[in-house]
Design a protein around this nucleic acid. Structure first.
Lengths: 177, 177
DNA sequence: TCGGTCATGTAATTTGTTACATGATTTA
DNA sequence: TAAATCATGTAACAAATTACATGACCGA
């Protein structure tokens, strides 16, 4: 199988953590992710999981609850190998960069009237403050989960969100005070 | 015209800052961006610019240097209006979230042997340290550019990159020391 | 004048989303 | 038992990338 896409890698990774899983469970992990990068829509997950199974990176076993039937998937040995190389052999540039839809818009702020700029930045400060609080809660919750990796992932989100809030406050002070 | 995609908004924004511009110049802005979110490939930019022009958000005027001919684009009044609403009416959730391909992989690190995990984190610390230095240089350079927005954009990138580096060091201390 | 870069494009492909369809299960 | 949600899918579309093609310009 050719190089994995980001979503394929993520699906493989989620399976490695929570196997055995149904495609529906995988979808929910993405949907409920504190900061969803993917929609986790059926249209993306089901065909993708089938493709991974066809390539023997996942193996599906029938399961049924009541009349409802479907497949639960486990990661195979070769799937685990591919997951490892997806993690290790990613282009470093891609991993190092941080793309940021808010900062992108900030760059074009001069297209707005000053009053609109103020309102925009003020709103984003408010929203980011809420976001930081949300992540703090998540972070606190995961700290007692006995899964260091989960907790440290949340810590990462927290540090980044705080940095962004600090930046917005710097912007406010510099431009509007 | 329906709601703008991220790249369409960005093209409109770049045009608003540097007009009049050729599609080629727009491409280069994306390619040379310190932290490229888009490839700026010809295949994305040329058709996109034509589409924006067909919808009267950009207006093209013929220009020629020597025998080479093409179009330079300006943003129209209606283009500026659409750009404003692209900035202001974005879904806040989308702007607040920070997607992070490195943190994504970190979540699945347990799939690696501990020695591989160490090597991965150590490598990323090294790469992020370089990245921070690069952005610091960019930040210093833009501080004398009389474009507050450009400089503050670089500051944003710097604060985020530093936060990520701090996170990686926290990860290292917690897991491998 | 030859090779490399500049500049403008087009075609095929990849990746993921939205919208739709359908039946099972749970809850009011 | 009706409505809401769970669960599994499919089809059409959207967005952006890669690879290709072509000619202009510039420096050795």
């Amino acid at each position: 199988m050719r190089k994995l896409s980001e979503l394929e890698g993520a699906v493989l990774g989620v399976t490695s953590l929570y196997e055995p899983v149904t495609p529906y469970q995988i979808r929910k992990v993405f949907e409920r992710s504190p900061n969803p990068h993917w929609s986790g829509s059926a249209g993306s997950i089901y065909p993708l999981v089938e493709r991974l199974a066809r390539n023997r990176l996942l193996s599906g076993r029938a399961h049924a609850t009541g009349k409802r039937r479907g497949l639960k998937y486990n990661i195979t040995a070769s799937g685990r190998k591919v997951l490892r190389s997806w993690i290790l052999e990613a282009e470093h540039e891609k991993l190092v960069g941080i793309s940021d839809l808010l900062r992108l818009r900030f760059r074009f702020l001069p297209a707005l009237k000053v009053a609109e700029q103020r309102r925009f930045v003020a709103t984003m400060i408010r929203k980011m403050t809420e976001e930081v609080e949300k992540i703090e809660a998540d972070c606190h919750q995961t700290s007692s989960s006995h899964d260091d990796y989960l907790h440290l992932t949340a810590r990462g989100a927290l540090l980044m969100a705080r940095a962004r809030l600090a930046w917005l406050q710097e912007v406010w002070a510099r431009l509007f005070q």
